[in-house]
Design a protein around this nucleic acid. Sequence first.
DNA 1: GTCTCCCCTGTTAGTCACTACCAAGTTGGT
DNA 2: ACCAACTTGGTAGTGACTAACAGGGGAGAC
Lengths: 199, 199
Amino acid sequence: MPDQQPTLRAQRRAETQRTIQAHAVRLFSTRGYDATTVADVAEAAGVSPMTVYRHFPTKEDLVLVDQHRELVAERVAASSAGQPLVSRIGRALVESADVLTEGGARTFLLARLRLMISTPALRARHLDSHYALQQAIVDALGAETGPAFHAQAAAAACLAAMHTALIRWAEDDGRSELPDLIEEALTAAFGNGGGPRLP
Amino acid sequence: MPDQQPTLRAQRRAETQRTIQAHAVRLFSTRGYDATTVADVAEAAGVSPMTVYRHFPTKEDLVLVDQHRELVAERVAASSAGQPLVSRIGRALVESADVLTEGGARTFLLARLRLMISTPALRARHLDSHYALQQAIVDALGAETGPAFHAQAAAAACLAAMHTALIRWAEDDGRSELPDLIEEALTAAFGNGGGPRLP
DNA sequence: GTCTCCCCTGTTAGTCACTACCAAGTTGGT
DNA sequence: ACCAACTTGGTAGTGACTAACAGGGGAGAC
């Protein structure tokens, strides 16, 4: 059970993973996703094609790697249970977006997002990852929120609204603030019942 | 421009298309999607693998063929422009589901839906088709509905709610009424602002 | 330090989805 | 009967992805 070794070996592994992904996104963005083979990515990263598959189960995952889930789930779990579902979820989404766009990874985030929007295969998988995120949100909401079906519907609707904000953000080339766009999309869908703006 | 010939040649084409799809869904449901090759489908349908690809661009499209789009779009376009967006869209979705589940294709619809839910690749493509449906809805809403971004968010949220209803319906094995489930999902997401039940 | 175990990486061969490119039979209009 | 367009089948090839086997460099034990 290698779980308490954040150093040394795992470090190299994480680095090659980052290297491979960085080269992949760069090549996909310049040459196009379909025109770039996994072998091309491997060669650019200086590894063998097999190594790419050991780190990323599919070619699509080279773009779709995502730690967004944990970020959102913990915020949903921490929200006060008294408010309506869409408020709790919406707030968690806005705050998570705030965190993600703070760091210096903004450009990389945009490049990945552009790929996910323009490439059909990636767009489909991206939407499917939202579906997984939806399950995580429902789990984080807890059991006493009425029928699970209702929580599913609320979470799905919130995520769909966020998705339109993501697309808008990419179209803006990241010039606008993502949290604001998400807030606007939520308001457009649910009205002002989604709760007031962050302090 | 062969556009005015609803007879003869196109008839045979439509029939082979139906035959291929029927055999495909049957084989996928029994043997599993991944365990069934396109060659298997072709052999079962009595055609060559090439012919399958002529009628369906990808293996996934063997399950995902869908005329739902036109059905929903025309109902959205016919809705009265005075109501809130989510009401207009939600009503159109409920009515379209009513039409689709009326016919005798209910069993076939369920089989396809089960495949789309259980198979990752199909689930992703299914969600992507909802994205295309979303664009059609926004177009059908007309131009005077405020920022297009708001219409996108409202349509995306409505479709996501409907999707949870579809999953619930499949889990029920189609015993409940799909339009009712969609109505319930919309209410869970948007409250009662979505408008009253159909007359 | 050295030995040993294990993880990581590379190589090969193979399956399968999917795509041109070309050949043949059928149907539709003249 | 004749030409054109449509549909189908065959072949060869690309590329994503998998399984099985072999070598190399760190990890811990002595």
